[in-house]
């Protein structure tokens, strides 16, 4: 499996001197093309920092991030912004939709701002809104949609420009159990059926279990990783009873 994202000795220290806080300590992580990876860990373990550094939303103190072979830290802020806009898709806990725009206009907006012709942007947005199950909600405004549906619009918006990776920060954090499961099922499908690469931060075990791999962070370090086997029969523990 080709690596879509590689981090080398990724380290982030906030502040200086005695008040310095080390959020990440030498993270070496590789995410394969098409892989769905969940990052878990207690509050303050550095999981959001990791997502922000990979997403180019913050710069590392030490270490490197490669996206599809390209190192981000050597680029200027403007170049990073362009990569973020064209090659990454973000999904957050809150959907950040524009209230006066329809689902279709919201999903198409980043592409239009990036100079894609409106008709082409709407075509891409419509395709992904249909794939996330909102073909009958294209003209609805956010206020007319449920939380789960608004998050679907945000996911369609994140995917419509065909990014190399989706970065999701607590995508189910604002949803109830049922809607959260639907969003997690959708992310699973985006990875399995449409081959997209996903890095998701969550504190919810039920949501993390949808992924191909779970990375456990603690005190800024990777302490454990679990590869989840796709075959329901494998990976089971067979222990003889005595």
């Amino acid at each position: 499996m080709e690596s879509m994202v590689v981090t080398e000795n990724l380290t982030k220290v906030y502040g200086k001197g005695e008040t310095a806080v080390t959020a990440l300590k030498g993270i070496n992580l590789s995410i394969g093309q098409g892989e769905f990876v969940a990052v878990m860990g207690p509050s303050g373990c550095g999981k959001s920092t990791l997502l922000y550094l990979i997403g180019g939303l913050d710069r590392p103190t030490e270490g490197k991030v490669y996206l599809d072979g390209q190192e981000l830290s050597t680029l200027t802020d403007n170049q990073v912004t362009e990569i973020r806009r064209r090659k990454m898709g973000f999904v957050f806990q809150f959907y950040n939709l524009i209230p006066v725009l329809s689902a279709l206009e919201n999903a198409a907006l980043p592409m239009i701002l990036d100079g894609v012709p409106v008709a082409r942007a709407h075509e891409r947005a419509r395709l992904w809104l249909e794939r996330v199950g909102l073909s009958d909600r294209l003209d609805h405004r956010p206020a007319e949609l449920s939380g789960g549906q608004q998050q679907r619009v945000a996911i369609a918006r994140a995917l419509a420009h065909e990014p190399l990776i989706i970065l999701a920060d607590e995508p189910t954090g604002n949803l109830d159990s049922r809607a959260g499961d639907e969003i997690a099922t959708l992310l699973r499908q985006i990875s399995s059926e449409w081959g997209r690469t996903i890095l998701m931060v969550t504190h919810d075990p039920r949501i993390a279990a949808y992924a191909d791999r779970i990375v456990f962070l603690k005190d800024g370090k990777i302490v454990d990783q679990t590869h989840l086997n796709g075959n329901a029969q494998e990976g089971r523990i067979n222990e003889a009873d005595s």
């Binding site: 075990p205 039920r206 949808y210 456990f216 454990d224 679990t226 086997n229 089971r236 523990i237």
Partner: peptide, 16 residues
């Protein structure tokens, strides 16, 4: 950690 991995695998299987 061993127990956690096993539980996650089980959870993944049930979810699938």
């Amino acid at each position: 950690y061993a127990q956690r991995s096993s539980l996650y695998q089980e959870l993944h299987d049930l979810t699938e």
